[in-house]
Amino acid sequence: MTALVQRLRATSGAGEDDLRALEALPYALRNYRENQTVLRDGDRPSECCLIVDGFCVRSKTIADGKRQILSIHIPGDLPDLQNLQLSTMDHDVVALSNCTLAFITHAAIRDLIRARPTVGDIFWRDTLVDAAVFREWIVNVGQRAAHNRLAHIIVELRERLQMIGRVTGNAFAMPLTQEQIGEAMGVTNVHTNRILRQLRLDGVLEFHRGVVKILNEHKLQELAQFDGRYLHSSPCS
């Protein structure tokens, strides 16, 4: 619960009583292996999953087997919070790395929201920010050139990891393969490889074994064209 509470305290202006009530929710911990499916399109879950450790993605796979990664999720995220209101999954949730997930029953969350309506407001805000991130990803995939697209994804991930204290100096975890990065950008793994090579040659960043190391912040910002307002990372934003 720590990462969730840390993020909500910083971003939503949630009161300490509400945060303590969230921390007191009963949960069951389950471990998932890298690439293991957590939820499938069509599932009807009765619990929400909170990422305690590791990374997950939401994705959709089309008829010919091609997969689009829709969003990347980090500790403190509730990637299936929408199922509290929408009973059937319309996409997959997959563990990117080995993950520990905390499952909280919908019933427990509903009881808490009824007892403390401001917790409902916190969750509502969280799903709205989620939608804002999706809008930005549509712009990114639809309009930016591939190297700008990748730079944007990397800066966004770093900003979100920073909120939960998971950035050390100029390095942070991004446990995606080149194939998965390509699936997030809508390009092939060969094109992804070409972009990563160019970014390294240009002294912008290095990506090795799931870790990004920023070499030149100025160049990275120039490429990413990043305006973080859509992350709504403070209560008044």
């Binding site: 050139a145 591939a146 190297h147 390009v187 092939t188 793994n189 060969v190 094109h191 490889n193 070409r194």
Partner: peptide
């Protein structure tokens, strides 16, 4: 680095898709 693939049709599709996506930008 290269990559291991077992389907030559997939290799063709990957090469064309990569060329087209690099060309677009």
């Amino acid at each position: 680095e290269g990559r291991y693939l077992d389907d030559e049709e997939r290799v063709r599709a990957l090469a064309v898709a990569t060329g087209a996506s690099i060309a677009r930008d």
